[in-house]
């Protein structure tokens, strides 16, 4: 017993050192993985963003300070792409949050068939992105697509409608395909958070005479903050940088309607072979993404 106390005293005395050491030890694996794999690519693209690096001119690669950034920021098309990215992201994240909350609330109840439903909702997530993109492309097809076929048979339209080919519909339709695939993860993250709300909070509130809406607003929603934060950060990052569906469904078309920032970066990098400006755009996007993540954490996070 006395050994225990001495040990504790000893430990407390060295607490700072031990804490710092164990933190270091615990962080070491993840940091070394990131250092080997992730740090170089990030610095590399930062580095190239300061050069006028056009691959078709391999012998003339001048260091141009912030010229690439100036060039990108003064490009009209860049700002148009930014606006489209913003509308795609807002649309998607809001839809994902609402749907995920709804699904999580449903799965939080206990009822017959819950297991079945919770396994089914994971399916969209499990379809490889490529197959998912082609599936939606085929569903949206104006000539043969299932969407037109279904709406016509239900009598909601009287002739086939142009979907992706209509610039006003393109972004919402792609957002729908994106949301469909992303919702399962979001729902799980919110559900997991829901599971960590202590039951006695509800009991106490009931004793105090709070009705359901009050309990939902005063207990459930605030307790879900960490879940919302995770979902918002993750899905914002995913949506703002999303590329695959734009590539598979429309290649930026029709007439720039889906020319979002990630598509612009792809075009600049791989089509135009301008690695310098492509990297500059990526860095601008990265800064914005980071700022958003920071704001979300400050808004919803507890202590991070």
């Amino acid at each position: 017993m006395s050994g225990f106390y001495t040990g504790l005293k000893y430990t407390l005395a060295r607490r700072f050192n031990y804490e710092a050491r164990s933190a270091g030890l615990f962080l070491f694996p993840v940091m070394s993985v990131l250092a080997v794999v992730a740090v170089f690519p990030i610095l590399y693209s930062l580095y190239t963003s300061f050069f006028n690096l056009k691959l078709t001119r391999p012998h003339r690669v001048p260091f141009v300070w912030f010229d690439n950034y100036v060039k990108v920021l003064s490009d009209e098309l860049f700002w148009e792409s930014v606006m489209r990215t913003v509308s795609f992201t807002v649309m998607s994240v809001v839809a994902i949050l609402i749907l995920a909350l709804f699904i999580a609330l449903l799965l939080n109840e206990s009822f017959h068939g819950r297991r079945f439903i919770s396994a089914m909702i994971l399916i969209p997530w499990a379809i490889p992105t490529v197959a998912n993109g082609l599936l939606w492309k085929w569903i949206y097809d104006s000539g043969y697509g299932a969407l037109n076929g279904l709406l016509l048979q239900l009598g909601l339209i009287d002739k086939y409608v142009v979907w992706l080919g209509d610039p006003d519909k393109t972004i919402p339709l792609i957002a729908n395909a994106f949301v469909w695939k992303e919702v399962p993860l979001a729902a799980i993250l919110i559900l997991v958070t829901m599971k960590s709300i202590p039951v006695d909070l509800y009991q106490a509130a009931r004793v105090d005479g709070a009705n359901l809406l009050q309990r939902f607003v005063h207990i459930t929603l605030p307790s879900l903050k960490p879940g919302f934060m995770l979902v918002m950060i993750y899905e914002t990052m995913m949506a703002i940088r999303h590329f695959d569906l734009f590539f598979l469904l429309t290649e930026g078309g029709p007439a720039d309607a889906s020319h979002v920032l990630s598509w612009q970066i792809y075009v600049e990098t791989f089509r135009n072979l301008s690695f310098g400006t492509g990297s500059a755009m990526s860095y601008i996007l990265a800064l914005v993404t980071f700022a958003l993540a920071y704001a979300i954490i400050k808004m919803l996070g507890r202590r991070i």
Binding site: D141, S142, Y144, V162, D166
Partner: peptide, 15 residues
């Protein structure tokens, strides 16, 4: 078709 701007070569071929 006004949908021509979303019709790729392969889809057009099938049509």
């Amino acid at each position: 078709s006004p949908a021509c701007v979303e019709t790729g070569e392969l889809t057009g071929l099938k049509a």
